[in-house]
Design a protein around this nucleic acid. Structure first.
Lengths: 255, 255
DNA sequence: CGTGGAGTTGACCAACCTCAAAACATGTGG
DNA sequence: CCACATGTTTTGAGGTTGGTCAACTCCACG
Protein backbone atom coordinates (compact mmCIF):
# COMPACT_ATOMS: atom_id res chain seq x y z
CA UNK A 1 0.00 0.00 0.00
CA UNK A 2 1.23 3.40 -0.96
CA UNK A 3 0.89 6.41 1.28
CA UNK A 4 0.98 9.79 -0.19
CA UNK A 5 1.05 12.34 2.54
CA UNK A 6 1.64 16.01 2.49
CA UNK A 7 4.83 16.72 0.68
CA UNK A 8 5.91 19.10 3.36
CA UNK A 9 6.28 16.38 5.80
CA UNK A 10 3.31 16.36 7.98
CA UNK A 11 3.77 12.70 8.59
CA UNK A 12 7.32 11.81 9.36
CA UNK A 13 6.94 8.33 10.74
CA UNK A 14 9.04 5.41 11.69
CA UNK A 15 8.87 2.41 9.47
CA UNK A 16 7.17 0.26 12.02
CA UNK A 17 4.52 2.92 12.42
CA UNK A 18 3.90 2.80 8.74
CA UNK A 19 3.46 -0.93 9.05
CA UNK A 20 0.88 -0.33 11.71
CA UNK A 21 -0.93 2.18 9.56
CA UNK A 22 -1.38 -0.41 6.87
CA UNK A 23 -3.48 -2.41 9.26
CA UNK A 24 -5.90 0.42 9.67
CA UNK A 25 -6.02 1.95 6.25
CA UNK A 26 -8.33 0.53 3.68
CA UNK A 27 -7.78 0.53 -0.05
CA UNK A 28 -8.51 3.47 -2.32
CA UNK A 29 -12.04 4.71 -2.75
CA UNK A 30 -13.34 6.78 -5.62
CA UNK A 31 -15.93 9.53 -5.50
CA UNK A 32 -17.36 11.52 -8.35
CA UNK A 33 -17.40 15.27 -8.55
CA UNK A 34 -20.30 16.57 -6.50
CA UNK A 35 -20.57 13.64 -4.11
CA UNK A 36 -21.03 14.50 -0.46
CA UNK A 37 -19.10 11.66 1.09
CA UNK A 38 -19.27 12.78 4.71
CA UNK A 39 -22.50 14.24 6.02
CA UNK A 40 -22.82 16.71 8.81
CA UNK A 41 -24.06 15.07 11.99
CA UNK A 42 -23.13 11.67 10.74
CA UNK A 43 -21.43 9.49 13.30
CA UNK A 44 -18.15 8.94 11.60
CA UNK A 45 -15.53 6.50 12.62
CA UNK A 46 -13.59 7.18 9.53
CA UNK A 47 -11.11 9.69 8.36
CA UNK A 48 -9.64 10.00 4.90
CA UNK A 49 -6.43 10.82 3.19
CA UNK A 50 -7.05 12.60 -0.08
CA UNK A 51 -4.93 11.00 -2.77
CA UNK A 52 -5.99 13.01 -5.78
CA UNK A 53 -8.51 15.66 -6.69
CA UNK A 54 -10.03 18.53 -4.76
CA UNK A 55 -12.54 18.38 -1.94
CA UNK A 56 -14.29 20.91 0.22
CA UNK A 57 -15.38 20.94 3.82
CA UNK A 58 -18.46 22.97 4.65
CA UNK A 59 -21.42 23.58 6.90
CA UNK A 60 -24.96 23.91 5.67
CA UNK A 61 -26.93 26.73 7.22
CA UNK A 62 -30.49 26.38 8.34
CA UNK A 63 -31.25 29.63 6.58
CA UNK A 64 -30.10 28.03 3.34
CA UNK A 65 -26.71 28.54 1.83
CA UNK A 66 -23.48 27.19 3.18
CA UNK A 67 -20.09 28.19 4.46
CA UNK A 68 -17.09 26.42 3.06
CA UNK A 69 -14.50 25.84 5.76
CA UNK A 70 -11.56 24.54 3.78
CA UNK A 71 -10.43 23.00 0.53
CA UNK A 72 -8.52 19.78 1.16
CA UNK A 73 -5.98 19.10 -1.60
CA UNK A 74 -4.08 15.95 -2.49
CA UNK A 75 -2.03 14.77 0.47
CA UNK A 76 -4.33 16.32 3.05
CA UNK A 77 -6.22 14.53 5.77
CA UNK A 78 -9.96 14.82 5.82
CA UNK A 79 -12.04 14.50 8.93
CA UNK A 80 -9.28 14.66 11.50
CA UNK A 81 -11.11 17.36 13.37
CA UNK A 82 -13.93 15.08 14.37
CA UNK A 83 -11.68 12.15 15.15
CA UNK A 84 -12.46 12.28 18.80
CA UNK A 85 -15.81 13.92 18.71
CA UNK A 86 -18.98 11.97 18.59
CA UNK A 87 -19.96 12.97 15.15
CA UNK A 88 -18.70 15.04 12.31
CA UNK A 89 -19.84 18.60 12.58
CA UNK A 90 -19.33 19.39 8.96
CA UNK A 91 -19.77 17.81 5.59
CA UNK A 92 -17.24 16.94 2.93
CA UNK A 93 -17.84 16.87 -0.78
CA UNK A 94 -15.75 16.13 -3.84
CA UNK A 95 -15.13 19.16 -6.05
CA UNK A 96 -13.60 16.99 -8.74
CA UNK A 97 -13.46 13.25 -9.15
CA UNK A 98 -11.30 12.14 -6.25
CA UNK A 99 -9.43 9.19 -4.83
CA UNK A 100 -9.10 8.71 -1.08
CA UNK A 101 -7.77 6.13 1.30
CA UNK A 102 -9.99 5.80 4.30
CA UNK A 103 -8.95 4.60 7.68
CA UNK A 104 -10.98 3.55 10.63
CA UNK A 105 -10.78 5.70 13.71
CA UNK A 106 -12.65 3.24 15.90
CA UNK A 107 -9.47 2.06 17.53
CA UNK A 108 -7.39 5.09 16.79
CA UNK A 109 -6.71 5.44 20.48
CA UNK A 110 -5.08 2.06 20.57
CA UNK A 111 -2.99 3.02 17.60
CA UNK A 112 -1.95 6.18 19.38
CA UNK A 113 -0.90 4.15 22.38
CA UNK A 114 1.18 1.74 20.36
CA UNK A 115 2.61 4.39 18.12
CA UNK A 116 2.81 7.77 19.77
CA UNK A 117 4.55 9.21 16.76
CA UNK A 118 1.33 8.77 14.85
CA UNK A 119 -0.47 10.73 17.49
CA UNK A 120 2.14 13.42 17.12
CA UNK A 121 1.84 13.45 13.37
CA UNK A 122 -1.92 13.69 13.51
CA UNK A 123 -1.74 16.47 16.03
CA UNK A 124 0.73 18.34 13.89
CA UNK A 125 -1.48 18.01 10.86
CA UNK A 126 -4.40 19.26 12.90
CA UNK A 127 -2.27 22.22 13.95
CA UNK A 128 -1.62 23.20 10.39
CA UNK A 129 -5.28 22.92 9.56
CA UNK A 130 -6.02 25.15 12.47
CA UNK A 131 -3.52 27.73 11.31
CA UNK A 132 -5.18 27.80 7.92
CA UNK A 133 -8.57 28.11 9.54
CA UNK A 134 -7.37 31.08 11.54
CA UNK A 135 -6.05 32.73 8.42
CA UNK A 136 -9.40 32.13 6.78
CA UNK A 137 -11.13 33.75 9.72
CA UNK A 138 -8.94 36.82 9.53
CA UNK A 139 -9.61 36.99 5.83
CA UNK A 140 -13.36 37.01 6.15
CA UNK A 141 -13.47 39.08 9.29
CA UNK A 142 -11.18 41.90 8.41
CA UNK A 143 -10.40 42.10 4.72
CA UNK A 144 -12.16 43.43 1.66
CA UNK A 145 -13.46 41.31 -1.17
CA UNK A 146 -10.50 41.70 -3.53
CA UNK A 147 -8.03 40.85 -0.82
CA UNK A 148 -10.05 37.81 0.12
CA UNK A 149 -10.22 36.37 -3.36
CA UNK A 150 -6.57 37.09 -4.03
CA UNK A 151 -5.57 35.61 -0.70
CA UNK A 152 -7.54 32.46 -1.24
CA UNK A 153 -6.11 31.82 -4.68
CA UNK A 154 -2.58 32.51 -3.48
CA UNK A 155 -2.98 30.06 -0.65
CA UNK A 156 -4.23 27.41 -3.03
CA UNK A 157 -1.31 28.07 -5.33
CA UNK A 158 1.09 27.79 -2.44
CA UNK A 159 -0.31 24.49 -1.23
CA UNK A 160 -0.53 23.03 -4.70
CA UNK A 161 3.02 24.00 -5.37
CA UNK A 162 4.20 22.16 -2.28
CA UNK A 163 2.34 19.17 -3.61
CA UNK A 164 4.01 19.57 -6.97
CA UNK A 165 0.70 20.33 -8.63
CA UNK A 166 1.25 23.92 -9.65
CA UNK A 167 3.88 25.90 -11.42
CA UNK A 168 4.66 29.21 -9.82
CA UNK A 169 2.14 31.10 -11.91
CA UNK A 170 -0.46 28.63 -13.02
CA UNK A 171 -2.61 25.80 -11.77
CA UNK A 172 -5.71 23.85 -12.59
CA UNK A 173 -8.64 24.68 -10.35
CA UNK A 174 -12.08 23.08 -10.39
CA UNK A 175 -13.66 25.78 -8.23
CA UNK A 176 -16.70 27.59 -9.50
CA UNK A 177 -17.36 31.18 -8.59
CA UNK A 178 -20.13 29.86 -6.37
CA UNK A 179 -17.62 27.76 -4.47
CA UNK A 180 -15.37 30.75 -3.99
CA UNK A 181 -18.30 32.83 -2.82
CA UNK A 182 -19.33 30.23 -0.27
CA UNK A 183 -15.79 30.01 1.02
CA UNK A 184 -15.21 33.73 1.26
CA UNK A 185 -18.52 34.95 2.60
CA UNK A 186 -19.38 36.83 -0.59
CA UNK A 187 -22.13 36.61 -3.17
CA UNK A 188 -21.27 34.81 -6.42
CA UNK A 189 -22.03 37.99 -8.33
CA UNK A 190 -19.53 39.92 -6.33
CA UNK A 191 -16.90 37.26 -6.76
CA UNK A 192 -17.40 37.68 -10.45
CA UNK A 193 -16.93 41.43 -10.22
CA UNK A 194 -13.77 40.96 -8.19
CA UNK A 195 -12.35 38.47 -10.66
CA UNK A 196 -13.03 40.90 -13.45
CA UNK A 197 -11.21 43.57 -11.54
CA UNK A 198 -8.23 41.32 -10.96
CA UNK A 199 -8.24 40.50 -14.65
CA UNK A 200 -8.48 44.16 -15.72
CA UNK A 201 -5.66 45.08 -13.39
CA UNK A 202 -3.55 42.45 -15.09
CA UNK A 203 -3.04 40.42 -11.95
CA UNK A 204 -4.70 37.12 -12.69
CA UNK A 205 -7.16 35.32 -14.91
CA UNK A 206 -9.39 32.43 -13.96
CA UNK A 207 -10.88 30.67 -16.89
CA UNK A 208 -11.57 27.19 -18.15
CA UNK A 209 -10.71 25.69 -14.79
CA UNK A 210 -7.30 27.24 -14.83
CA UNK A 211 -5.85 30.05 -12.79
CA UNK A 212 -3.07 32.04 -14.41
CA UNK A 213 -1.20 34.57 -12.36
CA UNK A 214 0.17 37.44 -14.44
CA UNK A 215 1.76 39.53 -11.75
CA UNK A 216 2.60 37.50 -8.70
CA UNK A 217 4.33 40.25 -6.75
CA UNK A 218 1.47 42.66 -7.19
CA UNK A 219 -1.03 39.98 -6.28
CA UNK A 220 0.80 39.10 -3.10
CA UNK A 221 0.83 42.78 -2.28
CA UNK A 222 -2.89 43.19 -2.86
CA UNK A 223 -3.71 40.12 -0.81
CA UNK A 224 -1.26 40.95 1.96
CA UNK A 225 -0.28 37.35 1.68
CA UNK A 226 2.17 35.74 4.07
CA UNK A 227 2.35 32.07 3.51
CA UNK A 228 4.45 31.16 6.49
CA UNK A 229 1.60 29.35 8.17
CA UNK A 230 1.50 26.86 5.32
CA UNK A 231 4.92 25.30 5.68
CA UNK A 232 5.18 25.70 9.42
CA UNK A 233 5.75 22.55 11.38
CA UNK A 234 7.81 21.06 8.67
CA UNK A 235 10.53 18.93 10.11
CA UNK A 236 13.31 17.36 8.15
CA UNK A 237 11.83 14.35 6.52
CA UNK A 238 14.20 11.39 6.54
CA UNK A 239 12.12 8.31 7.17
CA UNK A 240 12.85 8.09 10.83
CA UNK A 241 13.17 11.69 11.82
CA UNK A 242 10.97 12.05 14.75
CA UNK A 243 13.62 13.14 17.15
CA UNK A 244 13.03 16.49 15.73
CA UNK A 245 15.11 18.56 18.07
CA UNK A 246 12.43 20.55 19.74
CA UNK A 247 15.14 22.37 21.54
CA UNK A 248 16.31 24.53 18.69
CA UNK A 249 13.15 26.41 17.97
CA UNK A 250 14.65 29.47 16.51
CA UNK A 251 12.83 32.71 16.54
CA UNK A 252 11.70 33.66 13.10
CA UNK A 253 10.82 37.27 13.19
CA UNK A 254 8.75 38.90 10.53
CA UNK A 255 10.67 41.25 8.27
CA UNK B 1 -0.75 21.04 42.65
CA UNK B 2 -4.35 21.53 41.68
CA UNK B 3 -5.58 21.02 38.14
CA UNK B 4 -8.69 22.68 37.05
CA UNK B 5 -9.61 21.48 33.61
CA UNK B 6 -12.70 21.96 31.57
CA UNK B 7 -15.68 20.86 33.54
CA UNK B 8 -16.94 18.88 30.62
CA UNK B 9 -14.05 16.55 30.87
CA UNK B 10 -11.64 17.41 28.22
CA UNK B 11 -8.97 15.85 30.30
CA UNK B 12 -10.06 12.56 31.72
CA UNK B 13 -6.73 11.13 32.74
CA UNK B 14 -5.35 8.24 34.63
CA UNK B 15 -3.77 9.00 37.95
CA UNK B 16 -0.30 8.11 36.87
CA UNK B 17 -0.72 10.50 33.95
CA UNK B 18 -1.62 13.20 36.35
CA UNK B 19 1.50 12.45 38.27
CA UNK B 20 3.46 12.86 35.12
CA UNK B 21 1.76 16.13 34.34
CA UNK B 22 2.90 17.52 37.64
CA UNK B 23 6.45 17.16 36.47
CA UNK B 24 5.79 19.38 33.52
CA UNK B 25 3.43 21.95 34.89
CA UNK B 26 4.81 24.94 36.66
CA UNK B 27 3.13 26.86 39.41
CA UNK B 28 0.49 29.53 38.88
CA UNK B 29 1.36 32.73 37.08
CA UNK B 30 -0.54 35.98 37.27
CA UNK B 31 -1.11 38.49 34.51
CA UNK B 32 -2.84 41.81 34.70
CA UNK B 33 -5.69 42.85 32.48
CA UNK B 34 -4.30 44.03 29.18
CA UNK B 35 -1.07 42.04 29.25
CA UNK B 36 -0.12 40.32 26.04
CA UNK B 37 1.50 37.21 27.48
CA UNK B 38 2.09 35.35 24.22
CA UNK B 39 3.29 37.30 21.20
CA UNK B 40 2.68 36.38 17.62
CA UNK B 41 5.76 34.94 16.03
CA UNK B 42 7.33 34.19 19.36
CA UNK B 43 8.95 30.79 19.59
CA UNK B 44 6.94 29.30 22.37
CA UNK B 45 7.81 26.26 24.34
CA UNK B 46 4.92 26.82 26.61
CA UNK B 47 1.26 26.27 26.71
CA UNK B 48 -1.09 27.42 29.45
CA UNK B 49 -4.11 26.29 31.30
CA UNK B 50 -6.29 29.23 32.22
CA UNK B 51 -7.28 28.96 35.85
CA UNK B 52 -9.31 32.10 36.27
CA UNK B 53 -10.24 35.18 34.31
CA UNK B 54 -10.81 35.81 30.61
CA UNK B 55 -8.27 35.87 27.84
CA UNK B 56 -8.36 36.43 24.12
CA UNK B 57 -6.47 35.01 21.21
CA UNK B 58 -5.96 37.27 18.23
CA UNK B 59 -3.94 38.22 15.21
CA UNK B 60 -2.70 41.69 14.51
CA UNK B 61 -3.13 42.89 10.96
CA UNK B 62 -0.50 44.76 9.09
CA UNK B 63 -3.13 47.22 8.00
CA UNK B 64 -3.78 47.99 11.65
CA UNK B 65 -6.60 46.53 13.64
CA UNK B 66 -6.89 42.94 14.74
CA UNK B 67 -9.03 39.87 14.50
CA UNK B 68 -9.88 38.08 17.69
CA UNK B 69 -9.88 34.34 17.18
CA UNK B 70 -11.27 33.06 20.43
CA UNK B 71 -11.95 33.88 24.05
CA UNK B 72 -10.38 31.28 26.33
CA UNK B 73 -12.30 30.94 29.60
CA UNK B 74 -11.33 29.33 32.89
CA UNK B 75 -10.50 25.67 32.36
CA UNK B 76 -9.41 26.14 28.77
CA UNK B 77 -6.04 25.43 27.30
CA UNK B 78 -4.15 28.26 25.69
CA UNK B 79 -1.61 27.76 22.97
CA UNK B 80 -2.29 24.16 22.14
CA UNK B 81 -2.59 24.99 18.49
CA UNK B 82 1.03 25.91 18.18
CA UNK B 83 2.26 23.04 20.30
CA UNK B 84 3.96 21.38 17.41
CA UNK B 85 4.57 24.33 15.19
CA UNK B 86 7.74 26.30 15.31
CA UNK B 87 6.22 29.41 16.69
CA UNK B 88 2.93 30.72 17.82
CA UNK B 89 1.00 32.26 14.98
CA UNK B 90 -1.22 34.33 17.16
CA UNK B 91 -1.03 36.40 20.29
CA UNK B 92 -2.78 35.97 23.61
CA UNK B 93 -3.77 38.72 25.98
CA UNK B 94 -5.51 38.89 29.32
CA UNK B 95 -8.93 40.54 29.20
CA UNK B 96 -9.16 40.56 32.97
CA UNK B 97 -6.60 39.82 35.63
CA UNK B 98 -5.90 36.15 35.15
CA UNK B 99 -4.21 33.14 36.70
CA UNK B 100 -2.66 30.44 34.55
CA UNK B 101 -0.58 27.36 35.02
CA UNK B 102 2.00 27.05 32.34
CA UNK B 103 3.59 23.88 31.17
CA UNK B 104 6.60 23.28 29.08
CA UNK B 105 6.06 21.72 25.71
CA UNK B 106 9.72 21.16 25.03
CA UNK B 107 9.44 17.47 25.81
CA UNK B 108 5.78 17.10 25.12
CA UNK B 109 6.54 14.36 22.64
CA UNK B 110 8.15 12.29 25.33
CA UNK B 111 5.16 12.84 27.52
CA UNK B 112 2.90 11.68 24.72
CA UNK B 113 4.95 8.55 24.35
CA UNK B 114 4.82 7.70 28.01
CA UNK B 115 1.22 8.69 28.44
CA UNK B 116 -0.81 8.31 25.29
CA UNK B 117 -3.95 9.26 27.11
CA UNK B 118 -2.53 12.73 27.48
CA UNK B 119 -2.03 12.90 23.76
CA UNK B 120 -5.61 11.86 23.31
CA UNK B 121 -6.85 14.42 25.77
CA UNK B 122 -4.90 17.17 24.11
CA UNK B 123 -6.14 16.15 20.71
CA UNK B 124 -9.70 16.11 21.94
CA UNK B 125 -9.34 19.54 23.40
CA UNK B 126 -7.92 20.76 20.12
CA UNK B 127 -10.90 19.23 18.35
CA UNK B 128 -13.31 21.19 20.45
CA UNK B 129 -11.38 24.37 19.81
CA UNK B 130 -11.54 23.67 16.14
CA UNK B 131 -15.29 23.14 16.27
CA UNK B 132 -15.68 26.51 17.95
CA UNK B 133 -13.44 28.09 15.37
CA UNK B 134 -15.57 26.67 12.58
CA UNK B 135 -18.68 28.02 14.21
CA UNK B 136 -17.00 31.39 14.46
CA UNK B 137 -16.15 31.26 10.78
CA UNK B 138 -19.73 30.49 9.81
CA UNK B 139 -20.86 33.31 12.03
CA UNK B 140 -18.69 35.92 10.40
CA UNK B 141 -19.01 34.56 6.90
CA UNK B 142 -22.70 34.06 6.61
CA UNK B 143 -24.65 35.81 9.31
CA UNK B 144 -25.81 39.35 9.96
CA UNK B 145 -24.56 41.59 12.71
CA UNK B 146 -27.37 40.94 15.20
CA UNK B 147 -27.09 37.20 14.81
CA UNK B 148 -23.35 37.40 15.30
CA UNK B 149 -23.49 39.35 18.51
CA UNK B 150 -26.28 37.21 19.88
CA UNK B 151 -24.50 34.03 18.89
CA UNK B 152 -21.25 35.09 20.47
CA UNK B 153 -22.84 36.00 23.78
CA UNK B 154 -24.87 32.80 23.85
CA UNK B 155 -21.77 30.75 23.27
CA UNK B 156 -19.98 32.52 26.09
CA UNK B 157 -22.94 31.94 28.36
CA UNK B 158 -22.98 28.29 27.44
CA UNK B 159 -19.29 27.78 28.14
CA UNK B 160 -19.38 29.76 31.34
CA UNK B 161 -22.32 27.75 32.53
CA UNK B 162 -20.43 24.52 31.98
CA UNK B 163 -17.67 26.01 34.06
CA UNK B 164 -20.14 26.96 36.76
CA UNK B 165 -19.50 30.63 36.18
CA UNK B 166 -22.86 31.72 34.86
CA UNK B 167 -26.45 31.34 35.84
CA UNK B 168 -28.76 30.55 32.99
CA UNK B 169 -29.53 34.19 32.30
CA UNK B 170 -26.68 36.23 33.62
CA UNK B 171 -22.92 36.38 33.72
CA UNK B 172 -20.04 38.74 34.33
CA UNK B 173 -18.24 39.73 31.20
CA UNK B 174 -15.14 41.93 30.90
CA UNK B 175 -15.49 42.41 27.14
CA UNK B 176 -15.63 45.91 25.74
CA UNK B 177 -17.60 46.69 22.64
CA UNK B 178 -14.26 47.03 20.88
CA UNK B 179 -13.39 43.47 21.83
CA UNK B 180 -16.68 42.21 20.50
CA UNK B 181 -16.19 44.17 17.31
CA UNK B 182 -12.73 42.72 16.77
CA UNK B 183 -14.03 39.23 17.35
CA UNK B 184 -17.04 39.53 15.09
CA UNK B 185 -15.61 41.47 12.19
CA UNK B 186 -17.72 44.55 12.87
CA UNK B 187 -17.00 48.16 13.77
CA UNK B 188 -17.37 49.08 17.43
CA UNK B 189 -20.01 51.60 16.49
CA UNK B 190 -22.10 48.97 14.85
CA UNK B 191 -21.73 46.64 17.80
CA UNK B 192 -23.11 49.42 19.92
CA UNK B 193 -26.12 49.84 17.64
CA UNK B 194 -26.74 46.11 17.66
CA UNK B 195 -26.58 45.98 21.44
CA UNK B 196 -29.05 48.82 21.61
CA UNK B 197 -31.35 46.92 19.32
CA UNK B 198 -31.11 43.79 21.43
CA UNK B 199 -31.88 45.89 24.48
CA UNK B 200 -34.85 47.62 22.88
CA UNK B 201 -36.23 44.31 21.74
CA UNK B 202 -36.09 43.13 25.34
CA UNK B 203 -33.66 40.32 24.62
CA UNK B 204 -30.55 41.22 26.55
CA UNK B 205 -28.67 44.01 28.28
CA UNK B 206 -24.94 44.38 28.59
CA UNK B 207 -23.86 46.90 31.12
CA UNK B 208 -21.34 47.37 33.88
CA UNK B 209 -19.46 44.27 32.83
CA UNK B 210 -22.52 42.12 33.18
CA UNK B 211 -24.69 40.44 30.57
CA UNK B 212 -28.30 39.84 31.50
CA UNK B 213 -30.47 37.80 29.21
CA UNK B 214 -34.12 38.75 29.38
CA UNK B 215 -35.58 36.39 26.82
CA UNK B 216 -33.38 33.38 26.29
CA UNK B 217 -35.67 31.55 23.89
CA UNK B 218 -36.06 34.53 21.62
CA UNK B 219 -32.35 35.18 21.72
CA UNK B 220 -31.51 31.61 20.76
CA UNK B 221 -33.96 31.97 17.93
CA UNK B 222 -32.44 35.19 16.67
CA UNK B 223 -28.93 33.79 16.86
CA UNK B 224 -29.87 30.44 15.34
CA UNK B 225 -27.83 29.03 18.15
CA UNK B 226 -27.08 25.32 18.40
CA UNK B 227 -24.65 24.68 21.15
CA UNK B 228 -24.04 21.02 20.47
CA UNK B 229 -20.48 21.65 19.38
CA UNK B 230 -19.64 22.90 22.85
CA UNK B 231 -20.24 19.77 24.88
CA UNK B 232 -19.25 17.27 22.21
CA UNK B 233 -16.61 14.79 23.16
CA UNK B 234 -17.67 14.83 26.76
CA UNK B 235 -17.29 11.73 28.84
CA UNK B 236 -19.07 11.22 32.15
CA UNK B 237 -17.43 13.50 34.65
CA UNK B 238 -17.26 12.43 38.29
CA UNK B 239 -14.55 14.49 39.89
CA UNK B 240 -12.07 11.69 40.07
CA UNK B 241 -12.90 9.89 36.89
CA UNK B 242 -9.53 9.24 35.47
CA UNK B 243 -10.34 5.74 34.37
CA UNK B 244 -11.27 7.20 31.10
CA UNK B 245 -12.16 4.00 29.29
CA UNK B 246 -11.07 4.96 25.81
CA UNK B 247 -12.35 1.74 24.39
CA UNK B 248 -16.00 2.42 24.81
CA UNK B 249 -16.45 5.68 22.98
CA UNK B 250 -20.09 5.19 22.39
CA UNK B 251 -21.88 6.73 19.53
CA UNK B 252 -24.05 9.52 20.73
CA UNK B 253 -26.22 10.78 17.94
CA UNK B 254 -27.71 14.22 17.91
CA UNK B 255 -31.45 14.31 18.45
C1' DC C 1 -30.48 21.15 -31.20
C1' DG C 2 -32.04 21.77 -26.75
C1' DT C 3 -30.95 21.94 -21.91
C1' DG C 4 -28.80 23.13 -17.75
C1' DG C 5 -24.91 24.79 -15.34
C1' DA C 6 -21.66 28.42 -15.07
C1' DG C 7 -20.15 33.05 -16.09
C1' DT C 8 -21.35 38.08 -17.06
C1' DT C 9 -23.57 42.46 -16.75
C1' DG C 10 -26.55 46.37 -15.13
C1' DA C 11 -29.67 48.81 -11.85
C1' DC C 12 -30.97 49.40 -7.41
C1' DC C 13 -30.72 48.99 -2.46
C1' DA C 14 -29.35 47.81 2.38
C1' DA C 15 -26.04 46.74 5.73
C1' DC C 16 -22.41 48.31 7.60
C1' DC C 17 -18.35 51.63 7.82
C1' DT C 18 -16.11 56.12 8.73
C1' DC C 19 -15.80 60.46 10.73
C1' DA C 20 -16.99 63.46 14.38
C1' DA C 21 -18.50 64.69 18.79
C1' DA C 22 -20.58 64.27 23.09
C1' DA C 23 -21.90 61.83 27.50
C1' DC C 24 -20.37 58.85 30.83
C1' DA C 25 -17.43 56.20 33.58
C1' DT C 26 -13.20 55.14 36.26
C1' DG C 27 -9.09 55.80 38.32
C1' DT C 28 -5.12 59.06 39.55
C1' DG C 29 -2.59 62.62 41.68
C1' DG C 30 -2.95 66.78 44.04
C1' DC D 1 -12.61 65.72 47.89
C1' DC D 2 -11.79 67.77 43.62
C1' DA D 3 -9.65 68.15 38.99
C1' DC D 4 -8.11 65.85 35.35
C1' DA D 5 -6.91 62.21 32.11
C1' DT D 6 -8.09 58.18 29.91
C1' DG D 7 -11.04 54.66 28.33
C1' DT D 8 -15.74 53.25 27.16
C1' DT D 9 -20.37 53.94 25.53
C1' DT D 10 -23.67 56.53 22.87
C1' DT D 11 -25.56 59.17 19.02
C1' DG D 12 -25.85 61.46 14.41
C1' DA D 13 -24.83 62.19 9.29
C1' DG D 14 -23.09 60.71 5.11
C1' DG D 15 -20.59 57.41 2.22
C1' DT D 16 -19.05 52.47 0.40
C1' DT D 17 -19.03 47.95 -0.07
C1' DG D 18 -21.20 44.36 -1.32
C1' DG D 19 -26.06 42.05 -1.71
C1' DT D 20 -30.33 41.18 -4.48
C1' DC D 21 -32.98 40.77 -8.58
C1' DA D 22 -33.27 40.04 -13.28
C1' DA D 23 -31.65 39.37 -17.43
C1' DC D 24 -28.56 37.54 -21.04
C1' DT D 25 -24.51 34.89 -22.79
C1' DC D 26 -21.52 31.16 -23.20
C1' DC D 27 -20.35 26.59 -23.14
C1' DA D 28 -20.32 21.40 -22.43
C1' DC D 29 -23.01 17.58 -22.99
C1' DG D 30 -26.65 14.60 -24.30
Amino acid sequence: MQFKTRPNCVLPLRLRDIACLSEVVSGPQYFKRGTEFVHEGQASHKAYLLQSGWACCYKNLREGGRQIISFPLPGDFIGLGSLLLRSSDHSFAALSDIVVSSFSTANIITVFQKHPSIATAVLRSASRDQAMLVEHLVDIGRRGAIERVAHCLLELRHRLQLAGLASSTQFGCPLTQYDLADALGLSPIHVNRVLRQLRERGLLTMKAHTVIIHDLAALIDVARYEGSYIDQGGIAHGEGSFDASYGDETLRQLP
